[in-house]
């Protein structure tokens, strides 16, 4: 039996505005197994961002359980969540989210610093792997969009996370560069056996993934047409 990396059991999330309840997620159930490349799709307002925040351990569900590798995450407190994000999750954002004052190398190494074991050698290896050998000391504003996303991918890998969470990783890139980035992300699964959850709007992108999870009105649906 394959190992479950991510597991959500009846995850619900509501917001209260002036004691009125707005239900965003209405009971989400799914698992992602080790080595899977899964895409998450859904229209605006479907609760996609909220779900992503919960899976990314940035937010907690109102009810339900969320496990990463059978570790219950949904009840953890702020600092424990920081630790989960640091060790178990590698984030790739749409707008790269690099620290502007740090070099590419420092940006890649930063999560390892927060993990308490700063590893520059591994950061260099990862930058080589994503094809940025000569760019160690460049700041983000000295790099192109595609190069920035490569730095972000290297950063996502530095602490050898259980899974990669990619939030529209090509959203801010032209189609050619976007394809290169998708190839790179795919190779993480194919060559390195990484588990990946990718949020995307792009039907074509979702086709290269093993499986697509559709979200609509706070629920998982089987309808592939959105």
């Amino acid at each position: 039996m394959a190992t479950k990396i991510i597991s959500l059991e009846d995850v619900k999330k509501s917001y209260f505005i002036k004691s009125e309840e707005f239900s965003i997620l209405k009971g989400i159930n799914f698992d992602i197994e080790k080595g899977e490349f899964v895409s998450l799709m859904g229209p605006s307002g479907s609760g996609k961002s909220t779900l992503l925040n919960i899976i990314g351990a940035l937010d907690k569900p109102t009810s339900g359980k969320y496990f990463i590798q059978e570790k219950l995450v949904s009840t953890l407190v702020s600092d424990q969540l920081a630790d989960i994000r640091n060790r178990y999750i590698g984030f790739i954002f749409q707008n790269f989210n690099l620290i502007p004052t740090l070099s590419a190398l420092d940006n890649v190494a930063l999560p390892s610093f927060y993990a308490g074991k700063l590893v520059y050698e591994r950061a260099k290896e990862l930058l080589n792997m994503v094809g940025l050998s000569g760019r160690f000391n460049n700041r983000p504003n000295e790099l192109s969009g595609g190069q920035r996303q490569r730095v972000a991918i290297a950063r996502a890998l530095i602490n050898d996370p259980e899974f990669i969470l990619a939030d529209e990783p090509t959203g801010n890139l032209d189609s050619k560069t976007g394809r290169e980035i998708i190839d790179l992300i795919s190779s993480l699964k194919n060559k390195h056996g990484k588990t990946i959850l990718m949020v995307t709007h792009d039907q074509n992108l979702s086709k290269i993934t093993d499986r697509v999870i559709y979200l609509k009105d706070g629920r998982i649906t089987n309808k592939k047409s959105l």
Binding site: S78, A82, D83, N86, N97, I99, Y114, N159
Partner: peptide, 14 residues
């Protein structure tokens, strides 16, 4: 934003 990024990649409040 930077603080958000730092926290997202695992910086604790302290």
């Amino acid at each position: 934003k930077e603080i958000g990024v730092r926290k997202a990649i695992g910086a604790k409040d302290v």
